[in-house]
Write a protein that binds this DNA or RNA. Sequence first.
DNA 1: TACTATTTCTGAACACGTTCAAAACACGGG
DNA 2: CCCGTGTTTTGAACGTGTTCAGAAATAGTA
Lengths: 218, 218
Amino acid sequence: MAVKSEQTRQKLADTALHMFREIGFEKTTMRAIAAEAGVSVGNAYYYFASKDDLVHELYVQVQEEHAATAALALEGSGSLGSRLGAVLHAGLDVMAPYHAFGADFVSTAIRPTSPVNPFSEASTPAREASLAIFRLAVDGARPAVPRKLRADLPELLWLGYMGITLFWVYDTSPGQQRTRRLVDGAAPLMARGLSLARLPGAAKVLDDILSLSRSIRS
Amino acid sequence: MAVKSEQTRQKLADTALHMFREIGFEKTTMRAIAAEAGVSVGNAYYYFASKDDLVHELYVQVQEEHAATAALALEGSGSLGSRLGAVLHAGLDVMAPYHAFGADFVSTAIRPTSPVNPFSEASTPAREASLAIFRLAVDGARPAVPRKLRADLPELLWLGYMGITLFWVYDTSPGQQRTRRLVDGAAPLMARGLSLARLPGAAKVLDDILSLSRSIRS
DNA sequence: TACTATTTCTGAACACGTTCAAAACACGGG
DNA sequence: CCCGTGTTTTGAACGTGTTCAGAAATAGTA
């Protein structure tokens, strides 16, 4: 029966995620996961091709949770700065329990061949969900974001989110408050920077940044 | 005799770096390095505490070479944009032979506890040398960089260099030409962006960016 | 029920990075 | 010459992620 199979898979995933959170990446060995889940090592590999695959499972779950809480925070409308801040803080909230795990996570995720890599094929659904959140934040902003930016901004913001996550991983301050301050400072700053689009001198620079980012992407 | 000891160490380092370049990180096993160098595995560990330590050796060497070639390119003076471009291109030149190795390198380097980590204690000399290059690029720029930026800019540029390296690792275009284009576009753009410091509207934003970057750093 | 095909599961085995007790070596002082 | 001390080197052993041949359970069909 397909149900039993799904149960084993779930049990493995749940056990792994729990152990990652509680005792970290290295101590969570495949043998330990299998033992804790009550199956053999080989069986764990029947469901997950690698330990990285289990990390991917964690990534997907965190991303889903982020999308959900962020969508809630984005109901109604507000300035781009405040909306961006809400999305970023929601992300930090969701990741918080995994901070100790962060370094190992990033080190795995950054490998282009890893399923955990945010740009990888395997991460497409998670990445799209995350991008959608930033699109929502941009589209619902009042005053509205300049039209010429509206298409590119979400992706750039998502990229910035990756950067902030990186900063967060390195942030050993209590409660990662430095990252919180970074978000509080950067979100409105970014929004105000964009309003420079109306200054004649700055508009040209902004245009160049946009066209560079477009030309690089292909 | 201390000479023989140093010879063994050198032989191991040379062998490892050569193998990293030729056959990649994973295939370069400690056993293979030891065999190729004509010593036992245990002996390799007498000189290098870990495989990461050997990667650190590579990092230091690449950094030294970068500092040397960049210093050469910075003789005389020129615009900040062109000087920045020269430094960045010099970096790409030096790293080029290791592009295939890049992913594994970054994945190792990004782990905060690794000796390869650019922010780590072990990397302090290499990091300082690299920072010095950017300081040189900024100080020798004509027209001169606005005074209030001169202190912070080198570190920010170095950080940007880390970002470009990350981009380069992911860049699978032939000869990493997309990264080359990125440098060609971003270097003058950055310089022109700074010249906005004189526009009254933009100056405030720039000030805020600076003070944010300062407040975050502590 | 009995036979086959498919899915699920097992545990031994492999190569890896790393550790360590002990061997081999170098060398100055008696 | 040999002893003793410190340095250098060895190779077996450990625990890890991963693989795989085959066993066990299940599903499907007659």
